[in-house]
Design a protein around this nucleic acid. Structure first.
Length: 775
RNA sequence: AGGCGGAUAGCUCAGCCGGGAGAGCGCUGCCCUUACAAGGCAGAGGUCACAGGUUCGAUCCCUGUUCCGCCUACCA
């Protein structure tokens, strides 16, 4: 009851214009043709279906073995196996493998088709026939099976359609196929599943059915109505694809288009090399209507109208393809024209997207400026359906690739690794996740899990972890805002404190790492760099280091506040693509210029922020503090309790650093630090620890249970000894020292030295502590 | 069936142009130290699926096997 035509896109918008233009040009170039080909057909929706619109599902079917007598050789028979006995009525040949000793002498003879009055040629076909499967003989039904259709083309076989568009046995077709009248009477107008048992019965009666066995197979169903699809011979529009595919293959082979990750290149090339002509017509209501008309005068009664008012246009009808609606037939000048009722496959207009959106076919400024685009981001599932077609159409109609890079992102799967689908009901609702953990947390999670070539199993713990990260940043922002009340003073980096110079240098480093990762489409690496830098360098160390300065009203405090704003602003801009909401919210609150962080430039490395010396000194400081904290943990001293520390290093520069950074070292280890050579340390009640060239002593005060401490020291010493033994064994191996690169050998030797140093100090301190613990 | 990918800490995953095994979550111990307990500090935990091969040396390279996942084709 719908007006078939009125549901079409009829607006004269740019996209429709581009679609018509492309259609007409392809037709003019002989690449757009009408033909009668097998397509996946939904007998209920009465439309062609593309591959993506067919859902496959496992099905327990049956395999029927049917005997075909060989003509002129009463002793010989051929037994074929089929899952669809009803289609045997449309057979036009039987195939065997040309090298199969059982059958090859039969090639060229004829077989009699049961239940009909026909004889079939026996052909040899190495492509269709798998000698191992079934009986090694295959029936060929070109009108109802894809492989058979192609085999039919190879052998020039006729196509006998015995099913109509509704998937019912067609009386007219059956008569053409010379099926026995009684059989026709049985099955005419029955749907396939009802006709099958009747055919089975008839075959039994004639003794043609020798065996029925269970057989697992896959059934295709229409994605809309779940009806089993039927390979169906019908008039459709096709695009001749080889001349389009060839340049698209070259573009990727020659690197004019880069597919990231590279692993998918072979998939793309393999698919493109085997691509078949593209059926672009669809018998559905929505879509761009095909710009073709037919003259009713010329074609007369060959144009038939169905009961629902739609038209059937035979494949040999002569279309008038035109950019605008024609008023008269160019042959007979008749004015009675009928527009093709079909619409185009949705991927047809999608394929034009990169240039149709920019005003093509007009030579617009936008087209010149934005075509080709830099990167197309998409999922693997539409690499072929969309991306490949954009490449083909782009190359054909603009002469240039539509984009330089194609980034294939991961697919998010459920916790079991299954693809999410509405019909399976395993869809994770992003709105729900966003409500629970925050949009930025979800976004950051997806970025962090986007390792190339691997799908994402969405795990809630990960999202929760990044929710905590967002929270950490929020708290850092609170801290910063709390301490920005005083004045700020700009100073050249060289005039700033150690902590400021260090963090600016580390910001540079982070900028570099994140930028490099992004350029390589390594969103996971970029996210991980950001996470680690912000949490474990900026928050854990920098914000702690500057706390004393912020308490004062000094030049240092004013400069520190300035550095704080500078560094935090850079960090927010760096993080903004990953956590847009949080960063905007915070950025608006800190001192800033401009309306939105979205409009700020992405940070770039500033050479004046580089401070290699500060970074080196920081390494020493953090090594010292960590060792001191380990000592605290060993002695079970609460973090709040002040302790006395002794420190020194066998390295002069390290010692110098400790001397300069003593206040910071004392702050972070909550201690009074005495920098003295080891011999000057008290001989009693000191826990001695070592980290490479560094030695740290911790005064033991009060009553402490040292047994646990001694036990842990012993275990550490044993681990060290094992490691030393392993490396020394390697160094004792002559072929290692002679064949390994010199740096590697030197590195091993250095490691042994420093491990032995650590072990020696542990041993002495273990010995001391056991004496103390014993008292 | 063919193609591709995976198998690393209890879980989710990094690492792998060959030389000391990592993160997050979970777990253990100590801490509510005025940004943050959705936190801080420290720690335990792994014959890097299995079997061969190449190499001075293999989680990493090669071959094979097993298991898992995905894509394609569907087997008459």
């Amino acid at each position: 009851s719908c007006d078939w035509d009125r549901l079409r896109f009829t607006l004269d918008d740019g996209l429709s214009r581009a679609v018509r233009e492309v259609f007409v040009r392809l037709h003019e170039d002989g690449l757009m043709y009408r033909g009668e080909r097998l397509i996946n057909w939904c007998p209920r929706c009465l439309t062609a279906l593309s591959d993506i619109e067919v859902e496959h599902e496992d099905h327990n079917g049956k395999l029927y073995h049917i005997v075909y007598p060989v003509v002129g050789d009463e002793a010989a028979t051929l037994t074929v196996a089929t899952t669809r006995p009803e289609t045997m009525l449309g057979d036009t040949a039987v195939a065997v493998h040309p090298d199969d000793p059982r059958y090859k002498h039969l090639i060229g003879k004829r077989a009699r088709l049961p239940l009909t009055n026909r004889e079939l040629p026996i052909v040899g076909d190495a492509i269709l026939v798998n000698r191992e499967f079934g009986t090694g003989a295959v029936k060929i039904t070109p009108a109802h099976d894809f492989s058979d259709f192609e085999a039919g083309e190879r052998h020039g076989l006729p196509r006998l359609a015995i099913l109509d568009m509704h998937g019912k046995l067609d009386a007219e077709g059956l008569r053409t196929a010379e099926v026995d009248a009684a059989v026709i009477h049985d099955i005419a107008d029955l749907p396939v599943l009802k006709a099958r048992p009747k055919v089975e019965q008839r075959l039994k009666e004639t003794g043609s059915l020798t065996k029925v066995e269970n057989h697992k197979m896959a059934l295709g169903r229409c994605y809309r109505c779940k009806t089993v699809v039927e390979p169906f011979l019908s008039p459709q529009w096709f695009v001749k694809i080889a001349p389009l595919a060839e340049p698209a293959i070259r573009a990727v082979e020659e690197g004019r288009i880069r597919i990231v990750p590279e692993g998918w290149v072979n998939n793309y090339l393999g698919w493109m090399r085997e691509i078949k002509d593209w059926c672009v017509s669809r018998q559905i209501w929505w879509g761009h209507q095909i710009p073709a008309w037919y003259c009713r005068t010329c074609h007369g009664s060959s144009l038939q109208q169905r009961a629902d008012g739609s038209w059937i246009i035979p494949s040999d009808a002569r279309p008038i393809v035109s950019r605008t609606e024609p008023t008269a037939c160019p042959h007979c000048n008749g004015a009675a024209l009928l527009r093709d009722p079909d619409v185009l496959d949705t991927w047809f207009s999608s394929a034009l997207w990169p240039f149709s959106t920019l005003g093509w076919p007009d030579e617009t400024a936008e087209l010149r400026r934005f075509y080709p685009t830099s990167t197309l981001v998409t999922g693997l599932d539409i690499l072929f359906f969309w991306v490949a077609r954009m490449i083909m159409m782009g190359l054909r109609f603009t002469g240039d690739v539509p984009f330089r890079d194609v980034y294939i992102h991961a697919l998010v799967r459920d916790a079991e690794g299954q693809k999410m689908s509405k019909s399976k009901g395993n869809v994770i609702d992003p709105l729900h996740v966003m409500h629970q953990y925050g949009t930025d947390a979800l976004r950051f999670t997806l970025a962090s899990m986007a390792s190339p070539g691997r799908d994402i199993k969405l795990a809630e713990e990960r999202i929760e972890g990044y929710r905590n990260f967002a929270n950490k940043i929020w708290n850092a922002a609170r801290f910063i805002l709390m301490h920005l009340e005083g004045e700020r003073e700009a100073a050249p980096p060289s005039g700033r404190s150690f902590a400021d110079r260090w963090i600016l240098s580390r910001v540079n480093h982070a900028v570099q790492q994140v930028t490099t990762s992004l350029e390589q489409y390594r969103f996971d690496q970029a996210a991980s760099h950001l996470y680690h830098f912000i949490w474990h360098e900026y928050c854990d160390w920098y914000l702690e280091l500057i706390k004393p300065a912020l308490q004062t009203e000094s030049d240092e405090a004013r400069r520190t506040r300035h550095s704080l704003v500078e560094s935090f602003d850079a960090i927010l801009r760096l993080l903004h693509p990953f956590m847009p909401y949080l960063t905007e919210e915070i950025w608006q609150k800190i001192p800033h210029q401009g309306d939105s962080i979205m409009l700020q430039p992405f940070p770039i490395r500033r050479s004046d922020w580089d401070a290699k010396d500060a970074e080196t000194r920081f390494e020493v400081l953090s090594k010292f503090v960590s060792t001191a904290r380990l000592g605290r943990a060993l002695l079970n001293i609460p973090p709040g309790q002040r302790v006395t520390l002794y420190g020194t290093s066998t390295d002069a520069e390290e010692l110098d650093t400790l001397t300069h950074l003593r206040p910071s070292a004392e702050l972070l280890s909550k201690a009074a630090l005495r920098l003295q050579p080891v011999p000057d340390w008290p001989t009693e009640r000191v826990l001695r620890l070592a980290e490479e060239r560094l030695s740290v002593g911790l005064a033991v005060e009060g009553d402490v249970d040292l047994n646990k401490t001694v036990g842990r020291l012993a275990k550490q010493r044993q681990d060290l000894a094992k490691e030393v033994a392993r490396i020394e064994a390697k160094l004792a191996n002559a072929s290692f020292t002679s064949k390994a690169p010199r740096e590697v050998v030197a590195e091993h030797e250095e490691r042994v030295r420093s491990l032995k140093h650590e072990a020696a100090i542990l041993a002495s301190s273990e010995e001391q502590l056991s004496r103390m613990g014993g008292s």
